[in-house]
Amino acid sequence: MEDRLQKILARAGYGSRRACEELIVDRRVKVNGTIATLGMKADREKDEITVDNRPISQKESLKYIAFNKPLGVLSTVGANDPRPTVRDFVHVSGRLYPVGRLDVDSEGLILMTNDGELTNRLTHPKYKHEKEYRVQVAGSPTQAQLTAWQDGITLDDGQHTLPADVRIESQEKKSTWLRVILREGRNRQIRRMGASSNLPVQRIIRVRIANLRLNDLPTRKWRYLTSKEIKDLKNIT
């Protein structure tokens, strides 16, 4: 049965649908020897589909992994960058991609999988899935600063953020720990929110993606998701 090419590639473990669309736009995908274009359909059972001139594999077993990313590690895979990536720490064979991103200078929970359909549902902006962070800021935030984050704030590019859930978790001598819940994923969003409200961000630790929690997973370590966690993630999407 014919299906859109990006859906076939996503199901074969090549990333989210958007990532697979980029493969097509970059002219890396062929169907029966012809360079594919966006919107093209194919039948996986009848057509020869290749990526970088290599036939796509038969459907892989799906993998779901939680990783506690340390500072200085890239959340991207395949970047032309000498710094370590999350893939360097997760020694599992086959394709595996991070769901979304976490800045190199941020820490915490990364979900990695080869389930392109789940990746698409968790990262597409229209679904507004929650991501929760522990955020250390300099000094003591005023109520006006917290309210600005809660109401949504205009960033340096003129874009306005969605309202965020923000509360004070604890206070130290020269800094404050906040709990922040976002429902979008703009580039370096929390640090830019801090800059726009004169509230310098010192540290960011992601502790939850949707209903998947970091809990006590040590930094630099990974684990497979439980069957219940996988089921719960699929149910909310």
Rank of each mutant, 00 (worst) to 15 (best):
S16D: 07
L109K: 05
V25C: 00
R121F: 01
I204C: 06
E117D: 15
R121Y: 09
R44G: 09
I204M: 11
H160V: 15
R4P: 06
L38M: 12
L233A: 08
E184G: 02
V166P: 06
E107Q: 13
T76P: 11
E130C: 05
R186N: 05
R183I: 11
K30F: 03
V25T: 14
N198R: 15
R54F: 07
L102P: 05
G116W: 02
D105L: 12
A138K: 12
V201E: 02
P200E: 14
V137S: 08
A42S: 08
A210M: 01
S227M: 06
T147Q: 15
Y97L: 08
S140E: 09
A210V: 07
P218N: 01
Q143M: 06
T50W: 00
N120M: 01
S93F: 02
K46Q: 14
E130V: 08
L23N: 04
R83A: 04
R192H: 04
N114T: 10
A10D: 00
L214D: 02
R213F: 13
S75G: 08
K131L: 01
L225T: 03
K59T: 12
S140T: 13
N68V: 01
P125Y: 10
P163R: 01
G194F: 00
R101S: 09
H124C: 00
R18C: 00
K30P: 00
I65V: 15
A19H: 10
I230M: 00
G139K: 09
V166W: 02
L5E: 03
R206Y: 00
V90S: 05
I8A: 09
I205D: 06
S140I: 07
I204P: 11
G39L: 11
M1A: 15
S170L: 04
C20I: 03
R121V: 00
E132W: 10
V135R: 07
Q171W: 05
K221T: 13
Q171Y: 00
V92F: 03
T147W: 07
I181R: 14
L182C: 01
L74W: 06
L5V: 03
D26V: 06
T37E: 14
L146W: 10
I35H: 10
N53T: 04
Y97C: 02
S227W: 03
T219M: 15
T85W: 07
D216E: 15
N211C: 14
N211A: 04
L23G: 08
D88I: 06
E107N: 04
M112N: 07
S61L: 10
L102Y: 12
E60H: 12
I190Y: 09
R206Q: 05
H129M: 05
L233C: 13
A144S: 13
T37H: 15
G152W: 02
L122N: 13
I230W: 04
K126S: 15
V166I: 08
L178P: 03
A10E: 05
R11Q: 15
Y133S: 05
N211G: 01
L9A: 08
R192G: 08
Q189R: 07
R134S: 08
Q159H: 11
R167V: 13
D81A: 02
T50S: 02
K131F: 05
